[in-house]
């Protein structure tokens, strides 16, 4: 009965969690493992979940906790510092970018955005969480969410511009490409 309640509340978010995890890790196999861990951890702590509160945000909070744990295990990376260093190299806001690109090109550009910024872009732009919810999920102040979102979007636009340049085409030609 309790498991049924949990599944009814949590399983509808499975696909969204998997897609976000895939982009956070840039690896679908690892995302598969992570999502299974998220559901197991959520199930184990379901007693502490308050029915009627935001189950989706709760699951995403667990997702980021599990991703953080796995990344330390898999990559042993210094996430924030590296991100901030790259951030400092970002130039002024680029010109508006044409978006007539393929899914693969967009996802590849997103994967090249440092994870801290990518995480906020995913939460706010893709999963449509409010700043307040994203702040709760990531455990950072709302101001940090806002600055990471702004910088993350800027970095994404830059990556997409680089993709366009790698084709040897200008923005005008990019407009005419088919997805």
């Amino acid at each position: 009965m309790k498991r049924q309640q949990f599944e009814d509340a949590a399983l509808p978010h499975l696909n969204d969690l998997y897609r976000t995890a895939t982009r956070l890790l840039a690896d679908s196999t690892k995302a598969d493992d992570v999502v299974q861990d998220v559901f197991l951890q959520a199930w184990k702590s379901f007693d502490r979940f308050e029915v009627g509160t935001n189950c989706r945000a709760w699951l995403y909070k667990i997702l980021f906790h599990v991703v953080h744990h796995h990344r330390r295990k898999w990559f042993n990376v210094r996430m924030v510092k590296e991100s901030e260093e790259i951030l400092e190299q970002v130039a002024a806001s680029p010109e508006p970018l044409a978006e007539n690109l393929t899914d693969a090109e967009i996802l590849s550009a997103l994967d090249r955005v440092p994870q801290d910024f990518r995480a906020v872009v995913l939460l706010v732009d893709v999963d449509e969480f409010s700043y307040k919810e994203a702040s709760g999920i990531l455990g950072v102040p709302i101001g940090t969410v806002m600055s990471r979102l702004s910088r993350g979007r800027k970095l994404l636009r830059e990556q997409l511009e680089q993709t366009a340049q790698s084709y040897g085409i200008g923005k005008g030609k990019l407009e005419g490409r088919t997805a």
Binding site: L14, N15, Y18, R19, T20, T22, R23, S28, D32, P96, L97, A98, E99, L101, D103, I106, L107, L110, V121, L122, D125, V126, R153, L156, R157, L160
Partner: peptide, 20 residues
Amino acid sequence: ESRTRLKIRLKRAVQNQTVP
């Protein structure tokens, strides 16, 4: 307009990913 289009396009690209 450009940023909004990119946001929509990004969301679509992520949501188009196949789930096993």
